[in-house]
Amino acid sequence: MRRKKMLWTGCLLLVFFIILAALVPILSPYPYSEQNASICNRYPSFSHWFGTDRFGRDLFTRTWCGVRLSLCIGLGSAMICGTFGVALGAVAGYFGGMADCLVMRAADVVDAIPSLLYVVLLTLVLGTNAWSMILGICVSGWVETARISRGEAMRLKSSEFVQAARLSGASSWHVIWHHLLPNAAGPLIVSLAFFVPRAIFTEAFLSFAGVGIAAPAASLGALVAEGQRQVRLYPGQMLYPAIVLCLLVMALHFIAAGLEEGTC
């Protein structure tokens, strides 16, 4: 029962966040990168709900631009990693033998290296933008999904309905697509649901450290880092983006934990 509540709380929060992230940057009278020297470091007011930063940029608009970026990176990389991971894992588990060995050894090697290092190196080569971030996260992100998908494929391939499908002449691809994957969907969705907050965390973490998305683009991590520099005078500049970021990550965690309880 508690888990169901978690799932609903998470979903409601997420919907709320998505609506705000979609609408605020469009409807706001202040463009996210417009600097205005006459209104630097304002405290929250009716016209600037979260106040303004030291260049006079509206923090409310920037925060929701950051949420938009975080969601794009989180969902985008989850989708890409999901596709590759599921496909590779299913092929490895279903066919076994050489394919299995190749995919799993590659997974072992990729998994052994800390994933942040890939992201840092790739953003250095490709420039600090959302795409290089997503690519970097995906280099190692497919491993976990592939492992689960492989396990499920191995478990299911000897089951009677798969045997029946094969005996009635279905091709391997048909079996994988129509029989294995729908039955393996539960654990895969849970693992991807946990993947989204992790990807968002990676992006925010690196942007905070100054090696991720760079100004003037607004990333939640970079906003917290900017606020942290002025925390002695204007703690709000750090607190508001930090709270929004934490709520976003928590909402996604709640959804994942709720889904986990529902399927397992």
């Binding site: 917290v224 930090a242 970021l245 934490c246």
Partner: peptide, 22 residues
């Protein structure tokens, strides 16, 4: 534990600096 793992480490760090240091 949910709070501890949901709030990111750099947010804790910044929060500590603000609370304990400032």
């Amino acid at each position: 534990t949910i709070l501890g793992s949901g709030v990111l480490n750099f947010v804790w760090g910044s929060l500590f600096v603000w609370l304990f240091g400032v």
